Amino acid sequence: MGTVMYGDGGGWVWMVFMPLLWIVLIGLVVWAVIRLTQSASGGRYGGDGREHRESPEEILDRRYASGEIDTDAYTEARERLAAHRPRPR
């Protein structure tokens, strides 16, 4: 009679492993969301996980596009950058 009422005594296994299963599952979902949002938005990191540093030209282009500098300042800065850029051999 005791076996029918209480099962075979293996219920404690589910009581231990179900919370662990949920913790692992939630952790995987959080990790996947963070990973996908970083790569989808470009983030600060490239595809290989290293931090992407803007080149001087990229910074200049971004500032011009946002209206921080006018066309004359942009053109002058572009010319200066081109003059100081190392020449390939």
Rank of each mutant, 00 (worst) to 15 (best):
D70I: 03
A77I: 00
L21W: 13
E54W: 07
Y64M: 10
E79I: 07
W14E: 08
W12E: 10
H84V: 09
R53L: 04
V29P: 00
A32N: 09
A40N: 10
R63V: 00
M15Y: 08
L25T: 15
R78F: 01
G47I: 02
P56Q: 07
R44A: 07
T37K: 08
T3S: 13
G7A: 13
A40L: 10
S66G: 05
V30Q: 07
R87M: 12
R35P: 01
A83V: 04
G7Y: 08
A77L: 08
E76H: 13
H52M: 06
G11S: 13
E54Y: 09
L81C: 13
L21I: 15
R62T: 01
I23E: 04
E68W: 08
L60I: 04
S55Q: 09
R44T: 02
V29R: 03
H84K: 13
E79A: 15
R63S: 01
P86Q: 06
Y64A: 11
R53W: 03
R78K: 15
R53V: 04
W31M: 13
A82Q: 10
L28G: 14
M1A: 14
I59H: 02
I34K: 08
I59R: 04
E76R: 15
M15Q: 13
A77C: 03
I34R: 08
G10N: 13
T37M: 10
V16F: 10
I23S: 05
L28C: 14
H52G: 02
R35V: 12
W14P: 06
G7F: 02
E51T: 00
P56V: 02
H52V: 15
A40I: 12
L81Y: 06
G46E: 00
A83R: 15
D61Q: 15
I59A: 04
R87F: 05
V33S: 09
G7R: 08
